[in-house]
Write a protein that binds this DNA or RNA. Sequence first.
DNA 1: TAAGCGTGGGT
DNA 2: TACCCAAGCTT
Length: 291
Amino acid sequence: MFDNPYSTAVLAWYETNARELPWRRDDATPWSILVSEIMLQQTPVVRVLPAWEAWMRRWPSPAHLAEEPSGEAVRMWNRLGYPRRALNLHAAACAIVERHGGEVPSSHADLLALPGVGAYTAAAVASFAFGQRHAVLDTNVRRVLARAHTGAEYPPKTQTKAEVALAESLVPPDAAVAARWAVAVMELGALVCTARSPACADCPIAAQCAWRLAGKPAYEGPPRRGQTYAGTDRQVRGRLLAVLRESPAPVPKSALDVVWQEPVQRERALDALVADGLVDPLDDGTYALPN
DNA sequence: TAAGCGTGGGT
DNA sequence: TACCCAAGCTT
């Protein structure tokens, strides 16, 4: 039987506290919402906002993007990070044109089949763009449910079946309400139930929060992260791709060699970029963004 | 399943 | 200063 002890309070809170984001406006299209979701994967809202505006101005529909070289998407991506997302978005646009007549599909299964669209993004687009009933489980929701329902400060490192089952059990029966719940609980996690210093005083469900009621016990478990960036292949890849983004024409190898001293790591990073389709090695020995 | 994949701002 | 974290996906 459906029982969500938080939904009424969270929905009411959202009514007066939701941010006005452009992809939430009434004139947002499924395409503009899909673009926002891809951009927001591991990237903060404040950095996505200007990139999304520029992207939507240039490519207001999948067909507009699909007729351009994929390298233009990578260039336009600029410094948002994880540039394979730009490649995925271009490939998704092509697939939407070829398989769906240029219209972003509405079914979860069709969305999931698009490049760069996983379980979260498919559910988010189906919910936000098409008003469907899905469990939308992102990092914000996982944290809210861990605290409010499970009593832990942080969710497990990797998503568990128990989390999915819990999230599904909380989805309101009515589709329109479910879609509202999805965006509302995400927003609560983004604005109030934050990772670092949650604003429990402003939380509409503080009275029912298992973690707070337990006295906010500290997180117990393995170290949550540790990924350093300096000196990694990721940093080298970033520098190599930055050279290509900023050059309107193909560049000689020498222009890439200057970004990293150590040749073994540099070549490994470049080879990986080529393998990923982010860099195109031309016949004359120069390098460019892909076509 | 866990590791790899960018970048920049906050603490 | 060094982390930590941000609407994940892929292999």
